[in-house]
C-alpha cells in the first residue's frame, strides 16, 4: 500500500487472541513469534504495546496482557527485544504481575506509557471487583509507576503499610486509554458502568473515587456508592453519561494538525467515533465527534511519527490514518 511510514520504519499491532503483527515500511505483514501465553477470554488477551523511547538502540518494546495464573488471570507487563528482522521477540522479561489473581475475564485495563525519565505508567482495571479499587493492598483499579526492569522508582507516593508495590493512584474502574501531554503529565480514560466514563489526570497519591463516587449507575439501574462527590476523592476532568465505551487515547503534538495541538483523542467502542476533546491546559472545553458511525468499534488511537492521527477499528479489523485532505 505504501505511504504513511517513514522509510525503513515499521509498526506493530497486537491482536487480542495473542498474535503480534509487524508491518514494515512497505506494509509487508509478518507474525512475530515469542509472544507470551495470554488468557484470551472475555476482555482478556494480548493488550497494549509501545516501543521504548530508545528503541532504535535497544529494540525494546513494552507489552501488557492478561496472563493465565492459578485462580484465574492477572494483568502483566513484559519487556522484550524485537529481533533485527522483526520475526521474534527475544529476551522477554515479565516485569510486573497484578496481585492478587482473580477469576473471570473482566476489566484488565490496560495501557502502558513510558515517561521521559525512563519509568513507565501502567493502567490496571479492577477485574470486576469494584471494592478492590479502594483497597491499597491490591493492584486492582490502580495506576502503577515502575522502572523498566520492574523495580520501584524513586518518587512514588506512600500509600502506607501493606500497600501493593508501585502504586501511583487509586480508585480507577477500567482505564483502557492513557497518554502523556507535552508537559509529560499522564492522562487516562476509563470505562464507567452505565454512564460515568471518565477522563482523569492521575496525580501521585490521589484517589479517583471508584466505586465510592461515580457519575454512572450500575447496569441494574441502581445508584453506585455514595454519589458524585466526596472529600479526599478527585473529580474527573470530564465524564460521559451515557457511556461511549472509551478505549485508546492520544494527545496530538500539532505537527500535522496545528488546530488540534494538545487536544485529547479517544476511541469509542460503542458509538463508533473518535472523540476530540478540546483541551485548554487542565480543562476540557468542548467535544467534537469525528467520523461518527463510519468505522466500527474504535479500540486504539495514536499519533504517528509525522503527527498524523491513526486509529484501529476492531469492527472493521483495520488500521486507518487521518491526514489533512489535499
Amino acid at each position: 500500500m505504501g505511504g504513511g511510514l517513514p522509510a525503513g520504519r515499521g509498526l506493530l499491532i497486537t491482536e487480542r487472541d495473542g498474535k503480534l503483527l509487524h508491518f514494515d515500511g512497505e506494509w509487508q505483514r509478518r507474525d512475530v513469534a515469542g509472544v507470551p501465553q495470554v488468557y484470551a477470554s472475555g476482555q482478556g488477551g494480548l493488550l497494549d504495546l509501545v516501543a521504548a523511547r530508545d528503541f532504535a538502540a535497544t529494540r525494546e518494546i513494552f507489552l501488557t496482557y492478561a496472563e493465565p495464573a492459578d485462580g484465574g488471570a492477572r494483568t502483566a507487563v513484559a519487556v522484550a527485544r524485537l529481533s533485527e528482522d522483526a520475526r521474534t521477540l527475544d529476551d522477554l522479561r515479565v516485569i510486573f504481575r497484578m496481585s492478587p489473581t482473580v477469576p473471570g475475564g473482566r476489566h484488565f485495563g490496560s495501557r502502558v506509557v513510558e515517561n521521559a525519565d525512563g519509568t513507565i505508567f501502567v493502567t490496571l482495571g479492577e477485574r470486576g471487583q469494584a471494592d478492590l479499587a479502594q483497597d491499597v493492598s491490591t493492584h486492582m483499579g490502580k495506576v502503577v509507576r515502575l522502572n523498566r526492569d520492574g523495580s520501584l522508582p524513586d518518587g512514588n507516593p506512600d500509600f502506607g503499610v501493606g500497600a501493593a508495590p508501585g502504586l501511583w493512584s487509586i480508585g480507577h474502574r477500567n482505564p483502557q486509554g492513557a497518554a502523556l501531554d507535552a508537559d509529560g503529565r499522564l492522562w487516562t480514560v476509563a470505562h464507567g458502568a452505565r454512564g460515568g466514563d471518565e477522563i482523569n489526570r492521575p496525580e501521585a497519591g490521589k484517589n479517583y473515587g471508584w466505586p465510592v463516587i461515580s457519575y454512572g449507575r450500575a447496569y441494574s439501574g441502581l445508584t453506585i456508592g455514595e454519589g458524585t462527590h466526596k472529600q479526599g476523592m478527585e473529580q474527573p476532568v470530564t465524564y460521559w453519561d451515557p457511556s461511549i465505551a472509551p478505549s485508546g487515547m492520544a494527545i496530538l503534538s500539532g505537527r500535522m494538525f496545528p488546530e488540534w495541538e494538545g487536544d485529547i483523542f479517544v476511541g469509542s467502542l460503542k458509538d463508533d467515533y473518535v472523540s476530540r476533546l478540546d483541551r485548554e491546559s487542565d480543562r476540557i472545553v468542548a467535544e467534537e465527534g469525528l467520523f461518527r458511525g463510519t468505522f466500527a468499534r474504535i479500540r486504539d488511537v495514536r499519533e504517528g511519527p509525522d503527527g498524523a492521527l491513526w486509529f484501529l477499528s476492531e469492527g472493521d479489523g483495520a488500521l486507518y490514518r487521518v491526514t489533512p485532505a489535499e
Binding site: 516501543a51 532504535a56 518494546i61 524485537l82
Partner: peptide, 23 residues
C-alpha cells in the same frame, strides 16, 4: 482524509510505531 492502511486484522487492540532503526 481517512485512509485504510491495513486490513484483515482480527480484534486488533493496540498499534505502536517503531521509532528509527532498521525496520
Amino acid at each position: 482524509e481517512v485512509t485504510r492502511m491495513a486490513g484483515g486484522l482480527d480484534t486488533p487492540w493496540a498499534v505502536a510505531f517503531l521509532p528509527g532503526g532498521a525496520s
